[in-house]
Amino acid sequence: MIEYRNVKKSYGGKQIIKGVDLTVEKGEFVVLIGPSGCGKTTTLKMLNRLIEPSEGSIWINGADHREMDLVKLRTSIGYVIQQIGLFPNMTVEENIAVVPRIMKWEKKKTLDRVKELLNMVNMPYNEYGRKYPKQLSGGQQQRIGVLRALAVNPPVILMDEPFGALDPITREILQSEVKKIQRELKITILFVTHDMQEAMKMADRIVFMDQGRVLQQAPPKEMLLHPANETVARFIALQGIGSRTDRITAADLMQQASGLAAGEDSVTVEAEEEVKEICQKYDLSKYRRICVKDSQGLLIGEITVGSLLEHLTEWM
């Protein structure tokens, strides 16, 4: 549904984006990640034309986005940034109603929508509708920022480090809320962060960028297990993700094999079992092999304890 075709961007002769090709499917949650200055925010802002590409083109549902009406394009793409993005001169209600007003919704319809959205995050209209952003906590402000982006049910939402300024607990709650809303409403989200843990948690697919190029595009687990090159691997390691083995299951590590038999030197685990749990549950020094069975109890592969330990040290 969204397609970047060899998109480049230069400022004063310096090329910031050096040819990005990226396809995003409907309902997909894509996280752009990379060190600062890698071009992830620029890539994001080119979609709603806050920044115009120098070369290449971006296609939305088969149409070149430069040929679309600018207001129509922007009202169909929600936009969330850090909490500073709420208009301080407007109440919560007015902030959420910004895009409906631009689209000339009826007052009644707008009000109903505002109430509906506020209920969705347990911030009743009667209590919060008339408040100004400064009267809310950081987490509440950011919720309103998300609601504002959802107001007219846009098919696409752009999020630029939306939770960067929040404390870890609030951040985690909001991450879950957004992920849930995205799944339920099947919204396409492009999300920029420099936090690998956030990317792992949110993404269907992570797009790793560095110096204006896409280095790797992969689902979270795959990127974690098989970083495309040194830069990606180092970035992941630096962020402490290496020690985080959640979400990696026995099935991810096993070598497929047939005709296996469990023996005295082996322990048998479910394919869906997480590696972390396996390490906690069994004393692996007593075994040489881990046999992996599927939900029907059939052995489908094995992991040698040696290779598992190798992986674990790599992740540390």
């Binding site: 922007r74 793409i77 936009y79 895009v99 631009i102």
Partner: peptide, 20 residues
């Protein structure tokens, strides 16, 4: 940042000037 956000929401120049 607020000006850019106003643009991103789809406000035109006049709306941005008056409302923001």
């Amino acid at each position: 940042i607020l000006k850019e956000t106003a643009d991103a929401m789809g406000m035109n120049r006049l709306q941005r000037l008056v409302r923001v």
